[in-house]
Every structure is written in C-alpha cells, then in structure tokens.
Design a protein around this nucleic acid. Structure first.
Lengths: 140, 140
DNA sequence: GTTCTTGCAAAATATTTGCAAGACG
DNA sequence: CGTCTTGCAAATATTTTGCAAGAAC
C-alpha cells in the first residue's frame, strides 16, 4: 500500500511531510521516533510540522504513538497497513532501542461499566541482548 | 509498613521529601503524579528534589514510574508494599486520570535469548465512565 | 564529621500555539 | 480559489545538571 493511497483513503492531503513519514515507516517496518524520522528523511521539515503530522496520522488511526518513557516516544504504523498482529514493545533501558515482540496473546481486560478502551499497550522494559553482554553497563 | 522503615531497609536516608512522598502514596493507595504529590504535601520541596527522590526510590524498586503519555507520568508503590497484585493502568484520554485495573493475568512474554525483562507495563487508553457520559467530549 | 540530600539558578528537551505565507485538490 | 498545512517565533512544561549550603547517621 502506498503512502498517497493511505492518505487519500482518509481524506488527508498528500503533503510532503506525511508522505515522507509514511514512506519511511513502511520501508523501515519498525517503530521510529521523531528524531529518527527527522534525521533519516532527505527533505527537511520543521519539528512543529512533524508533531502536527504525527498527531493527524494518529487521530486517523494510521499510526500509533508508543510512549515507553517520558522522553522516549515512538511511532508505528497501524497493523492494518503492516499486516502485523498485535504485539508488545520491548524497551532497552540501556540503549533506548524499542523493538516489537510477538506475544502469545494480550489478555482481554475487563474494565468497569461505561469505560471505553481505545488502545492497549504492553511495554516490556529491560535490557536487550547486546546490552546484556556488556557487564559494566548499569541500568538506570 | 512505615516510610522510615522502608527507607532504612534500603539503606536510604529518611529525608523529608522521601518520607512525604511515601506517606502520601501509602495513604492514597493510588498512582500519583509529581504535581499531585507536590500539591498535596504540606511541606514544600523543590521540583528538582522531587525528581531526584522519585529517581532514587524507583532505582531501589520502592516505587515505579508509570508513563501513560509523554507528559503524563505517575508514580506508584511497589506491590511488595501495597500487597496489591500485578495490574494494568487505565488512562482516560479526556480527564487524564489514571486508575489501576485488575487483570485476569498479564501473559508471560517470551523474549529473545539474552534479553532481560525488569518491568512489564500494561496501559489501557480510553475514556472513563464519567467522561463517557459527556457526549460532547472529544478524544484527542 | 562524612556522606548524601536539598535548593537555586540555569540549561536541555519536548511539545504546543498563533499567525501569516504557501501548497493541495 | 478555498481549505488545510507549513514555518517561524515564542510560550509551556518537563526534566536534568552543577554547585554550595544543609541534613542525616
């Protein structure tokens, strides 16, 4: 699925920034931060523009915001685009990398009456393989 | 369990700010933000001091940092102190309230070899009962 | 008394908002 | 051309750091 197509399906204008973000995400297949996206994108846009684009794309369910820590925010394509099933996110506290982890299943959660759930996020925090090897590394 | 006792068990000095934070958390039994804690505490401390106290308490596993959104961070006592079992956190996108939700079980997650998990966080984002009633309210 | 903690000032970051100029359909 | 998007400047907010003064043990 092409970026322009995704946008038009949602009646969103195919602007440079949105196309850039989506192309990069489709290509990378991974959760990316604003910084990573801004650095990897050939054309440059203002940070404000990125934030506004993320917000719009998120509101339309095209991407999702994954907050692993106050200052570690990633964005990821919706599974309707990637064909990936629901998964958890592993956050390495040492190198700050975020990666998707398949989970047997994320449990059905029972919330009190009249509560509505829009998103379920399972975040695992720890140390990735590379950082586990380095014995000297301290967590936190 | 008293605050001073908890601190001494971890060889941490029983300072006013730490005692204040722990007392408040024990009393409230809920996840609290830095702002909530600062407002509710009779004695006042610098924000810097709160952040440093949270960090120390977190590093010692006495409290946990729950990040529901970039600017919505809460702190909660470890379950060894509250005797509460593992639970999820429901975040209302409208009123920003966070509340603990019992879950049947948080699944065992299989991570790749050599990965180490220190924390598992299940965050549910949606609309609480009060905010669901208000039809005019927009999410996000 | 020694070591750890606090307060203050200041910096670093992230994120949001208003408004005029520009791009999209 | 009308509407939505962008860039810029600036405001808000959070979080971190250095350093000297003060508290805990």
């Amino acid at each position: 699925m092409e970026s322009a197509e995704i946008l038009s399906e949602h009646q969103l204008k195919a602007t440079g920034c949105r196309i850039g973000i989506l192309d990069l995400m489709i290509e990378s297949g991974n959760a990316l931060s604003e910084n990573e996206i801004r650095e990897k994108l050939e054309s440059s846009f203002d940070r404000t523009t990125f934030y506004r684009s993320f917000k719009t794309l998120d509101e339309h369910g095209i991407i999702h915001k994954i907050v692993v820590d106050s200052q570690v925010v990633k964005y990821e394509l919706d599974k309707s685009i990637t064909n990936r099933k629901q998964h958890a996110h592993f956050y390495c506290k040492v190198c700050d990398a975020v990666q998707c982890i398949d989970v047997a299943e994320i449990p059905e959660v029972v919330v009190p009456k009249h509560y509505k759930i829009y998103e379920v996020e399972l975040v695992l925090k720890g140390k990735c393989d590379k950082c586990s090897e380095m014995k000297s590394t301290r967590v936190q």
